[in-house]
Nucleic acid binder design. Structure first.
Length: 570
RNA sequence: GGGCCUGUAGCUCAAUUGGUUAGAGCAGAGCGCUCAUAACGCUUUGGUUGGGGGUUCGAGUCCCUCCGGGCCUACCA
């Protein structure tokens, strides 16, 4: 048994996430957590909401609510949805928690003591009408290069020229449209990442087994131009972690907060404290402090590719720079994007399927199966309703669901609703058991390597093997001549259902629970011993015939949903 | 502009990292079965691996070039 700390990138607070967000971090993290728990490992799986920053304030303003209230409500919404998708977090925290405030301030103090914080006076655009400083991309205007009228202050998306907000002609606030802008001086703290470039570089270089997507992004930042740049870690905002050095005030930094990307990853640690404070655990340091028991922890992070720089560089710089023995990440699994029917999912345009809508139309298992078996691991992948309907109907309804249905119903009609005890496994049964042993080990190898699509294919092959066996054993024929042999065949079939329930639980937990319950069993131990697992249910053990596990998606439903989600939300 | 990823059968994806005749699932065709959600099983048709050139005994894999798709580019997060 080993100990695994798993975190998913924490989703931003300003709205309900779409399926692309879900499959990019939380869902695969959950798959891995469930798998490792299933195999008897000790797992701490943490996630939460990322609540600070300009978009949260704007979303709250749009909703007409104080930002704290808005975030609290959205946390509740996201939490409920995560439960709906059966995401098995040990704790779902908040980056706005008191624990995270304290720890963020603690890290800042340590970094300052280590000489890694620099105070820099810089010029930023201030909007008098909005009463706030504007991030570059919240300044809009006409591009001096191409004349595009909606260029942003950081870059013109029409001609891709890099811009400075002061370059824009007729600059205006993207928030209010006000042109009453001025450039003001403001003082900010910078994290001297440049001083840690070599240390980070050698650390990244030691991770030869990480996905190319992860290391190539990190190395690009490390080696591009003059190398890793210092980064501002404070902002002129109201909502966030107040700038302090540990418990002490930071002179000159009153009314400022830490930048969301400084405090958000720290929430991974704070979340473990929240977990303890919520009474769910009793020692968070043994997961996070290598001097207090975390030296044997394997830490895996899951995230979309857009989050990679913060997890490979900024957050490690924070941890290493503190000079304290915090646990560093051991493996980063990053994902490409899921596209929607020929384009991108779009939160702003409401294009695609969002988590709440998905659960309104189908149970979580359908989505989990499709999303995980099509996870965008090597390149962007694409959701289409045709593909979704076909995959779900074929894999879940026909291959797995129908298998459960045919064997339980056959047994009920010939032997009644108890495992028949007659006969004994013969050569054909042994061949199946041997085959399943090989296939199970292959499935485990893919799961261990976090090769999600391959694991899904391996699991499906395990389901298919059951149908192949039933077809060749043909207990409906055997029964006429030799009821005892048919009994053994059916007994193996029923054992397969329990076996499938255990193996499939990481992907489709609800169906797995239904299958296990139908087999009237609590034994969900991982089949390290496949022959033993396929002899677990013995004669006279009562079971029940479950309802249809997976109803098929009809053509009408598919067309309906395709039309409903093509345009804008609502 | 720069960097990275990517292009394989009608569709979604593999290919032990340069090694025999490029494989699966779905869709299509045929056969079988009748326990089952018109489900299952078996057989089978599909490929000039985006185009072109090069290195090599050997290239989907390495190099060059062109074409297409995507992401990132540090103040959105």
């Amino acid at each position: 048994m080993t100990r695994h700390l798993i975190t998913s990138a924490i989703p931003y607070i300003n709205g309900i996430k779409h399926l692309g967000n879900l499959v990019g971090s939380q869902l695969p993290a959950d798959l891995y957590a469930r798998y490792l728990r299933g195999r008897g490992n000790e797992v701490l799986f943490l996630c939460g909401t990322d609540e600070h920053g300009t978009p949260a304030e704007l979303a709250a303003a749009k909703a007409g609510k104080p930002v704290a209230e808005y975030c609290a409500e959205m946390w509740e919404v996201q939490w409920e949805l995560s439960q709906g998708f059966r995401l098995s977090f040990d704790h779902y925290g908040r980056s706005s928690s008191a624990q995270n405030h304290r720890l963020t301030q603690h890290f800042a103090g340590r970094l300052d003591t280590a000489g890694l914080i620099e105070e820099v006076t810089e010029k930023q655009v201030y909007s008098n009408a909005d009463g706030r400083f504007l991030p570059d991309r919240y300044v809009e205007g006409t591009c001096p290069n191409c004349g595009y009228e909606r260029a942003r202050g950081d870059q013109c998306e029409n001609c891709t020229k890099q811009l400075d907000p002061t370059d824009l002609i007729d600059a205006r606030s993207a928030i209010s449209g006000s042109t009453d802008l001025e450039v003001r001086e403001t003082k900010h703290l910078h994290l001297r990442q440049s001083a840690m470039m070599d240390q980070l570089d050698s650390w990244i270089s030691s991770k030869s087994d990480w996905p190319i997507l992860t290391t190539s992004i990190a190395k690009k930042w490390l080696h591009d131009g003059d190398g890793l740049q210092d980064r501002g870690i404070t902002r002129d905002l109201d909502w966030g972690v107040p700038v302090k050095k540990g418990d002490d005030d930071w002179p000159g930094m009153e009314d400022k907060v830490f930048y969301v990307w400084f405090d958000a990853p720290i929430e991974y640690i704070s979340c473990a404290q929240e977990w303890v404070d919520a009474g769910k655990g009793d020692n968070w340091e043994r997961w996070w402090r290598t001097d207090k028991g975390a030296e044997d922890v394997t830490y895996t992070q899951f995230m979309g590719k857009d989050n990679v720089p913060f997890h490979t560089l900024s957050f490690p710089a924070t941890i290493l720079g503190s000079g304290e023995p915090w646990k560093l990440v051991d493996y980063i699994k990053s994902f490409n994007y899921l596209n929607y029917d020929g384009g991108q999912f779009s939160t702003s345009q409401g294009r695609g399927v969002f988590m709440d809508q998905a659960l309104e139309i189908l149970p979580a298992d359908y989505w989990r199966w499709w999303l995980l078996s099509h996870a965008p691991e090597n390149s962007d992948s694409e959701f289409t309703w045709d593909n979704f309907q076909t995959s779900v109907n074929k894999d879940l309804a026909d291959v797995l669901g129908n298998f459960v249905s045919r064997i339980t119903k056959f047994c009920r009609s010939k032997f009644g609703e108890a495992v028949p005890g007659g006969g004994a496994y013969g050569a054909a049964e042994q061949a199946l058991i041997d085959d399943l042993t090989v296939k199970t080990r292959a499935y485990e190898a893919h799961m261990d390597a976090m090769e999600i699509r391959k694991a899904a294919a391996a699991l499906r092959a395990i389901w298919v093997a059951g149908n192949e066996y039933l077809q060749s054993a043909a207990p409906w024929s055997t029964f006429k001549e030799d009821p005892d042999s048919a009994a053994a065949q059916v007994r193996l079939g029923l054992n397969l259902i329990r076996f499938y329930a255990v193996l499939s639980a990481p992907f489709i937990p609800d169906a797995a629970a239904t299958m296990l319950a139908a087999m009237n069993s609590n034994d969900d131990s991982w089949p390290d011993d496949v022959p033993g697992a396929l002899n677990a249910l013995t004669g006279e053990h009562a079971f029940s015939v479950p309802d249809v596990l997976f109803a098929k998606i009809t053509d009408d439903q598919r067309e309906d949903w395709q039309a409903r989600f093509a345009g804008t939300r609502d």
